[in-house]
Each structure stands twice: as structure tokens, then as C-alpha cells.
């Protein structure tokens, strides 16, 4: 039975159901229970934004608080994964990758290759990304392009509560290391989610809406921004096809290319920056593989090449919005040689 729950609840439910199903699943991270050793509640936080709340009481041995010590506990999650556990470690803000990246890209990502295909490292690293909460430069960046560039990692960007649950269960059951990127401004967004466990395969894009005039590839929270733009454009008679890749690694190139073959036009919308990101990557893909289908230059809508600013007036300008997306679509639709 599907019912409406939030993105946060969807992730929590996925964790709870997988912990119930598989005793190898452990959850760890700073304040994932919260209040360890403190005089108050022993399940005080459930993670800094409450995603793991309640799990500690159900699985006291398998929800571990950690010191603020990302290298040690992310590395521990990786090591535990090689020895039979299925850890889900919370990095908290994705910007904190800077203090533990070695454990992710040099250890987890490379084990299988370096060890000649004999390592199995089913670790999930949850990390919150994204601007919009006035959290400033070190707590807001969309860092997933960095992970996407690392062979050996899978990178997941759920764009709704339904996607969040199914992709999380898939991430936990997946035998490769997965970086699970949660947009922190989406935790309270609500959607229909089945109560039962289900999985969404990696590398399969979701065609969020069909339309013949332009393909809009949007990632994570930008999917809803693209939908808003598409609603506006529909009133002007422009029909957008919105493609949500769901995972940036693996990337469902086929669905993107098929869509562009139909529409002849592409706009990529990404909250990450313009350099070495998914907008550049997907644009290059389409230019390389579907050049003949293109009827206009490829449009991109991204954040600027700056850190995320603090002041609300600046942060609002930083995040791509529906008007920018609509303008970009219009410009590719109206483009004339």
C-alpha cells in the first residue's frame, strides 16, 4: 500500500526495513543515535537532520554513534564492508568528504580493481548536499560530480520520496560502494511511497514527463525545478521531456540519447557548478553520440563557478530556478541558425 510520507521518512523506512531483513546492515555516523554518553535521551537526534531517528531503539547494537572522526568511521565502514557487514555510514554534509576522501576513493573505490576482482565492498555512504538552507559554503555544495568521476563508486541522487526509498534499498543490497546523496532541502517533501520494500535499479533514468519539443535532463532537486519550468512552458505550447538519471554513476546514457533523438534539443539542469560536472558531462555525451539529432546548441543551467554564498539574497541567485530553466528551454527551442 502506498501512502504519503516524506523523503526523510522514506530513507528511514528503507534503513529500518533492510536492518530488519538483513542482520549484516549497520548504521553509523555522528549522532546517528545521538546523545551517546550524554545524560539526556540516548536517541536524542537520529542524525543531525533526524533521518535515522528511531532506529537505535529498534536495533540498539547496530546503530552506532561515532566521534567526529570521519576518516576513522568512514574507513571503518569500508573495512567492515569487506568483512561481511553492509554498513550505511552517514558523512553528514557532503562537504566533509574533504576530511575522509582517501577512505572513499583510494580504498573503497579501488579495492575491487586493485585486488583483481576479489574484493566485495558493499558500503553505502549517505551524505547531504545542496544549497537552500543558508548553511553557507562548507555545508551546501553539490559535490557529487567528484564522486561520479571516480571509477568503482556508484552515485545516487534521489529526486523524490519514492526514489529515495527504492534507491536506498538498492544501495544497501548492492555489492559495490555507493555514495547516496540526499538533498537536505528535500527532506520534508512528501510523496506516495509503498509500505513494502522495493528496489529501483541503478542506471535506469526515469522519464518524469514526456514531451516532444526539448529534452530537459535534471538531477536531484532540480527535477522538481524542471517540472515547474515545464508547467510554465506548457502554457506557452512548449512540451518538455524531463529525464531524471537517478544515478550519475552508472549513467543511463541510452534514455538521454533516445529522448534527444526524438526532441532534437537538450537542456541540462544541475545544481552543481558548470565545470567538470554533470551538465558538461551529459552535454559532451549528447554532442558526441547524437550530434546528428541536435537542432540547436545544447543549453545548460547550473550554479555559477563560485562557492555557495551565505546571504539569502545571494544564495537564492546561486540556485538554478524555474525561470532560468524555462528561458534556457525557450532559447534552444527558438534557436535559428
Amino acid at each position: 500500500m502506498a501512502r504519503s510520507i516524506s523523503y526523510r521518512e522514506a530513507i528511514n523506512e528503507a534503513l529500518a526495513q533492510e536492518m530488519e531483513r538483513d542482520p549484516a546492515v549497520v548504521v553509523l555516523g555522528e549522532d546517528n543515535a545521538g546523545g551517546a554518553g550524554a545524560p539526556g535521551e540516548d536517541d536524542a537526534w537520529g542524525g543531525v537532520l533526524g533521518v535515522t531517528k528511531g532506529l537505535y531503539h529498534r536495533f540498539p547494537d547496530r546503530v552506532l554513534d561515532t566521534p567526529i572522526s570521519e576518516s576513522a568511521f568512514i574507513g571503518a565502514a569500508v573495512g567492515a564492508a569487506t568483512r561481511g557487514l553492509r554498513p550505511v555510514a552517514e558523512l553528514m554534509f557532503i562537504d566533509f568528504m574533504g576530511v575522509c576522501f582517501d577512505q572513499i576513493f583510494n580504498q573503497a573505490a579501488k579495492f575491487r580493481y586493485m585486488f583483481g576482482g576479489k574484493a566485495v565492498t558493499p558500503v553505502v555512504i549517505r551524505a547531504m548536499y545542496g544549497a537552500g538552507l543558508r548553511a553557507a559554503a562548507q555545508h551546501s555544495q553539490a559535490m557529487y560530480p567528484v564522486f561520479t568521476s571516480v571509477p568503482g563508486l556508484k552515485v545516487v541522487l534521489p529526486s523524490s520520496a519514492y526514489e529515495a526509498k527504492g534507491l536506498m534499498i538498492q544501495a544497501i543490497r548492492d555489492d559495490d560502494p555507493v555514495i547516496f546523496c540526499e538533498h537536505k532541502a528535500m527532506y520534508d517533501t512528501v510523496g506516495e511511497v509503498p509500505q513494502e520494500s522495493y528496489t529501483i535499479p541503478f542506471g535506469e533514468a526515469n522519464v518524469v514527463r514526456e514531451g516532444g519539443d526539448a529534452t530537459v535532463v535534471a538531477l536531484g532537486r532540480m527535477v522538481s525545478v524542471a517540472e515547474e519550468a515545464a508547467d510554465e512552458l506548457a502554457q506557452a505550447g512548449v512540451q518538455c521531456e524531463i529525464v531524471d538519471p537517478r544515478t550519475t554513476s552508472p549513467l543511463d546514457a541510452d534514455t538521454i540519447l533516445e529522448s534527444v533523438e526524438q526532441t532534437g534539443r537538450l537542456v541540462v539542469v544541475d545544481e552543481a557548478g558548470p565545470r567538470c560536472g554533470l551538465a558538461a558531462d551529459i552535454s559532451a555525451l549528447v554532442a558526441r553520440e547524437a550530434f546528428g539529432a541536435l537542432q540547436a546548441p545544447i543549453g545548460t543551467v547550473t550554479a555559477p563557478h563560485t562557492p555557495v554564498p551565505f546571504s539569502p539574497s545571494l544564495e537564492d541567485l546561486y540556485i538554478p530556478d524555474a525561470q532560468q530553466v524555462a528561458a534556457a528551454v525557450k532559447s534552444v527551442v527558438d534557436w535559428k541558425r
Binding site: 574507513g75 569500508v78 573495512g79 568483512r83 557487514l85
Partner: peptide, 14 residues
């Protein structure tokens, strides 16, 4: 220094 964190995880699994 790559190994000690991994060993914490292996020890946790054990």
C-alpha cells in the same frame, strides 16, 4: 595510514 580505519571496521564486523 590507510589501514587503521579499515581495521576498525574489520574489528567491528568481528
Amino acid at each position: 595510514g590507510g589501514g587503521p580505519p579499515l581495521i576498525c571496521g574489520a574489528a567491528l564486523a568481528a
